[in-house]
Simulated scan of single mutants.
Amino acid sequence: MYFSDFPFPERYESFITRKDVLDYLNMYADRFNLRPLVKLNCLVRNVRPLKDDRWEVTYLHKPTNETIRKVYDVVIVCNGHYNVPIYPEVIGEELFQGKKEHSRDYRHNGPYKDKRVLIIGAGPSGVDLTNQISEVAECVLFSTHSAVVAKQTYRENVIKKPDVSRIVDHETVEFTDGTTSRCDVIIYCTGYQYSFPFLDDSCGIKVEDGVIQPLYKHIINIERPTMCFIGLPFIVAAFLTFDVQTKYYCKYLDGSLKLPSKEEMYQDTENEKKWRSEKGISSNKFHMMGSLEQKYYDDLAAEAGIEPLPRVALKIKLASKDRQATDIQNYRRDRFVVLDDDNFILYESACDYPECKET
């Protein structure tokens, strides 16, 4: 999770805390003297292109409640996709009288003490919340169809359930296997949707079925290349994605990267859609990387002439995922030591680090 030009402090563990991440970002800002360049407490209301290829940005300065308009040469959209929750439609949902939440709202497990909690969704958030809430809850009903989760071992008060078929009454949920369970809280760990409410229609960006278009390499607005998006891909090592994408775009800004013609960029995007379809990837997962992640980074590096991402980074990510699948309770105590750009040593928590497994 660190940027290539500023490694983590040696005191950090392999699995860092939220506080560590915040401290690291503050240290990064101080190291490169970024604070004078950043305007905080500004809510962007509208972004629209001008005739001279520049951008008018309208924003609210919240401390003074003043609306300000300024013109910029480049707009880089970095609002991410972990803010606007996706809530699935559940039959009978209006009957439920307990609390309904999204993983976005979770801060700590205190409010769930002695509760019966239903968690829907088996992505990273679903797994983490199940693990944390089960420390204090009466029981956790973990609703998922994930084959990986089916093999994982959780605390005794975690009950694995299939998908929810409907809500029966004020506290009862029915699952697709016909069983029913009572719960006090439902937490949806069902992901997020892309949202850019501040972009004027004249920007030419559309979000349709989870796909942002028209973009080249999931980054550059094909029609207006002085606008780009950082961090759209999902199932990625996020900070590494930000790092590589930003370096790529900076090469365009300084003139060392020459973009193909509009026609060629559109064709490249269509070729990728076709290629993904042939691999069985549904159209609404166009920005998903997963096993395609290293190839994506390598393609960006090759086109922009930047240093490729060391393969050890994603090797560690995959090794961590394997450890999570086999030891969900303890894998965050593992330690990884990087040897070089291709190799690392894994110290597993179970053996308290006296021995190591070299990969």
Rank of each mutant, 00 (worst) to 15 (best):
L318P: 00
D128G: 01
W275Y: 09
R31M: 02
D200P: 01
P260A: 07
R69A: 05
S291M: 10
D23N: 15
V136H: 04
K99V: 06
D340P: 00
L22V: 07
C139V: 07
K262Q: 14
D334Y: 08
Y248V: 09
S165N: 04
K151G: 08
D169G: 06
I230Y: 04
L40N: 11
V44Y: 06
R107P: 00
Q132S: 13
T17F: 02
K160T: 05
S103C: 06
H145W: 03
K115P: 00
Y297N: 04
P225I: 08
T190Q: 03
I328G: 00
D20V: 08
D268A: 13
A122E: 08
H108N: 15
V211C: 02
L232I: 13
R311V: 06
N26F: 02
P63T: 03
D128W: 03
T153L: 09
I16P: 00
Y154F: 15
F175A: 07
C203I: 10
L318T: 09
D200L: 08
D20W: 13
K295C: 03
L141C: 04
Y188R: 09
P260E: 05
N157M: 10
Q267W: 00
F6L: 14
S4T: 13
A147M: 05
I119K: 12
V140C: 10
L318S: 10
K357A: 02
G231K: 11
I222G: 06
E156I: 07
H218C: 05
S195W: 04
A319W: 05
D53A: 11
V57T: 04
N284F: 02
R333G: 14
Q329L: 11
K115D: 00
D322K: 11
N157A: 12
V168R: 06
V244F: 03
F336Y: 15
E208R: 10
S261L: 03
R311S: 09
S134F: 01
V21C: 04
F96Y: 13
V71M: 03
P354N: 08
P162F: 01
I281F: 07
R11D: 09
G305M: 02
C183F: 05
K321R: 10
R116S: 06
I328N: 12
I159T: 08
Y248E: 07
A29F: 04
P9Y: 13
P49C: 11
I345H: 09
V74T: 13
D52E: 12
L300N: 08
T241A: 10
R18Q: 11
D184C: 09
D254M: 12
A325P: 00
V84W: 06
T246W: 01
T226G: 01
F175Q: 08
E138S: 13
E135S: 12
E89T: 14
F242M: 06
S202E: 12
R48G: 00
Y12A: 08
D200S: 15
L314I: 09
I281H: 04
V185T: 15
V164I: 14
Y353P: 00
V44G: 10
K357I: 06
G191Q: 11
A302Q: 14
V244Y: 03
P197S: 14
N65K: 13
Y87V: 13
G98M: 07
Y82K: 08
F344A: 04
F286W: 03
S277K: 13
I159R: 11
Y72E: 03
T17D: 01
Y249T: 13
A29M: 09
K273M: 15
T180W: 00
E307R: 08
R323C: 08
G290T: 06
Y194N: 03
A238C: 02
